[in-house]
Simulated scan of single mutants.
Amino acid sequence: MEYKHLSIENRNDLLIVLLNRPEAHNALNVRIRDELESVFSESKKDPNVKGLLLGANGKNFCSGYDLEEVIETKLESFKHRILEYHYAIYSYPKPIVCVLKGFCSAGGFDLALCGDYILAEKKTFLFRPEIRFGGPPLITTLARKVGPTKALSITLLGDPIRSAEALELGIIDEVVTEGDPIQKGLKVLEKMSQWDPKLISAEKEISNNFFQGNLYENLRKEFDLFKQFLEDPNFFQKVSEYAKSIQQKV
């Protein structure tokens, strides 16, 4: 696949993947999600890739799904390969380090949660706004980090979370206050990727599937449950109104 919205570099067998739609706050349109799914799916089979660092160009990591596209497609972009995309990033068998900055919202929050180690700049904030317009935020993704009950309380509160608070909650692993966050992330990734690849894959398999059910089945059941909200005739109007309110603030 030709990558339009990703910047990709293999540096000493560590794959650096940067979201590259800064003019749209790296919003997740269908194209960029397909590109991410492709990179994760292909690089997991590449012996010249020991681990993956996910970051972003521009001021923000990711503002979430591209709501303009969601409205234009009458919610169809919400549904596009939703299970395949999420499973590809969360089931990745090699170490992932995510480096966050600026906004990390909605689908961008969920994308960040694929990281086995998550660093964030001091001024980063994470946000799950979907519940504000009647959308169902993912529990499976956040529960993998903080457990299901804490994931539920964070989701129902619906408040923005600054990086320092995210660190206390266990959502992220480190706040970067000085130096180049990407370079710090690469040092962490180099350390995590030094072990036997089969051993790393086995450890990730255990983490993903032995404690809170099977990852694939959890995601599938959650997305099946979401269908009732997406099919609600009032949902499209709620999303449209929310998108307008966001545009007025930008």
Results as ranks from 00 to 15, higher is better:
F103D: 05
Y87S: 01
N57A: 00
N60H: 15
L14N: 11
D196W: 10
E68R: 07
N234V: 02
S240R: 12
P197A: 03
R128G: 05
K191C: 11
I131M: 10
K221N: 12
T140I: 10
F211H: 13
D46W: 04
N209P: 04
I96H: 01
Y242Q: 05
G179Q: 06
L138N: 10
T140V: 14
R128W: 05
N57K: 06
A202G: 02
E42R: 03
I171N: 00
I139F: 08
F235Y: 15
A112C: 07
C104W: 13
V30Q: 04
L14S: 05
I139V: 14
G170H: 02
C98S: 14
K198M: 15
I96G: 04
E241L: 05
D224V: 11
K50W: 14
G58S: 03
N12S: 14
L113P: 02
L75Y: 04
F125I: 06
L54I: 13
I16C: 07
K4I: 15
D173S: 05
E217K: 07
E203N: 12
C98W: 12
R31D: 15
A243D: 15
N12G: 06
L126M: 14
H25G: 06
F210A: 11
D196K: 08
P148M: 03
A202E: 09
L219G: 03
S240F: 08
Q228G: 03
D173Q: 02
C114M: 13
L28T: 03
I96Q: 03
L156D: 02
S63A: 11
D116F: 01
V188M: 02
V39R: 01
Q183M: 15
L19N: 08
N26M: 01
P233L: 06
V146A: 01
L111H: 01
S245Y: 10
K101R: 13
E205A: 07
